Amino acid sequence: MSAGELSSPPQPLWTAILLAGQRPEGDPMAEYCNVRYKALIPIHGQTMLERVTRALVKSPHIGRIVVMAQSPDALKAGLPADLAEDENIAFFPSTDGIATSIHSIVGSDAAPWPVLVTTADNALLTSAMIDRFFEEHRGQDVAVGVVERRTMLAAYPDARRTWLKFRGGAYSGANLFALQGEAAKPAVAFWSAVEKDRKKGWKIFAHFGPRLLLRALSQTIGFREAMAQAGERMGLRAEPIVLPMAEAAIDVDKPEDLALVTKILERRAGQASENRAI
């Protein structure tokens, strides 16, 4: 048997589902920026949708991108031609619910496994963040990208985020969700049931029984252990992936977020110019 026959088969590339919808009644940030769709808010010369799409295109782990929104044609028209006409980027209509939209397409021919879910307001996303996320992925059915509070405060002490507090640390989401295959579907269905409570960790853990809820509330359980126990209740393996980049947990939900993201992107552009000049 040759060495080539002994080698592992190549891993399939990931489908990225890029959520770019907004509330049916409109979005406060879209109104604040005087645009119709939040995903098309411009920041430092590019819309948020373009920035996230380009980060996904650049990653060697991503093979296909599915943009989901209530008005997919309008968002497609808002992208530069090289992205709008890319055969590996598709546009699909979404419902008003995030989890319902994902469940309707995940694992289909349009969005084959494995799937990475992210959002258009994740405007600081880079291919380096995506690569680091997948470097830490170990085949979990469900993996959730997070940033630890100490990492955030060391870089941006004034940044305001929603923190899930556990023994040993507090965490904020990075809008990166890996769904490995069919085994992840119960987690998507569960998310549909608790979506309105997504920023209230205790309400989510309440669905897994009083013992896990009490341990979460009393902070006598670590985040990794809590996710593992919740996953076991659904018959799957679930773990957090802690990212070392503070920017991974900064999305654009408020005007102060927009100001901070703009400042960070301006700094990145300046550093890139300096590097080119060397």
Rank of each mutant, 00 (worst) to 15 (best):
A143I: 01
I102P: 06
A184W: 04
L124I: 06
F91M: 07
L164Y: 09
T126F: 04
N175T: 04
D121P: 05
H103G: 11
K200H: 14
F166H: 05
L153C: 13
A187C: 06
F177D: 00
N122F: 00
W163S: 10
T162N: 14
A90K: 00
A174M: 07
R138W: 03
W113Y: 11
E135V: 14
A120C: 15
Q140E: 01
V146F: 03
A123Y: 07
E136W: 08
A193Q: 10
Y156K: 13
A128F: 09
A143P: 04
Q180L: 04
G173Q: 14
K196V: 08
R132K: 15
A128Y: 01
P114C: 12
E195L: 12
G168A: 02
F177V: 12
P157T: 11
E135S: 10
R198I: 14
R161Y: 15
R167C: 11
A143E: 06
D131W: 08
F208W: 03
A184L: 10
H137A: 03
G201E: 10
A170W: 00
N88P: 01
A206W: 09
A174Q: 08
A184V: 03
K199V: 14
A111P: 03
R132G: 10
V142S: 15
A90P: 12
R150T: 08
I89H: 02
V194P: 06
S192V: 07
H207E: 05
G181A: 05
T151K: 02
A120E: 11
S192A: 14
L124T: 03
V106F: 08
F177Y: 09
A120I: 06
T95V: 11
F177E: 01
E182V: 12
V115Q: 11
A143H: 08
A174E: 01
R138C: 03
S127P: 02
I130S: 00
E182P: 10
A184Y: 03
H137S: 07
S108C: 05
V188Q: 15
A143M: 08
A90H: 07
A184Q: 02
T151Y: 14
A99E: 12
R132P: 13
D141G: 07
L176R: 13
R161T: 02
A128P: 07
A183S: 05
S101E: 09
F205P: 01
S104N: 09
D197K: 01
T95L: 10
A189D: 15
Y171M: 07
Y156R: 13
A183E: 15
A128K: 00
P210H: 11
A178P: 03
Q180G: 00
R132Y: 07
G107E: 14
F166C: 00
A90D: 12
T126V: 00
V144H: 05
Q180K: 04
E135L: 11
W202D: 07
E195D: 13
A187Q: 04
Q140I: 02
V115W: 11
A206Y: 10
L179I: 10
I98V: 15
A155Y: 09
K185F: 06
L176A: 09
A178W: 02
K200M: 08
N175H: 05
V147T: 13
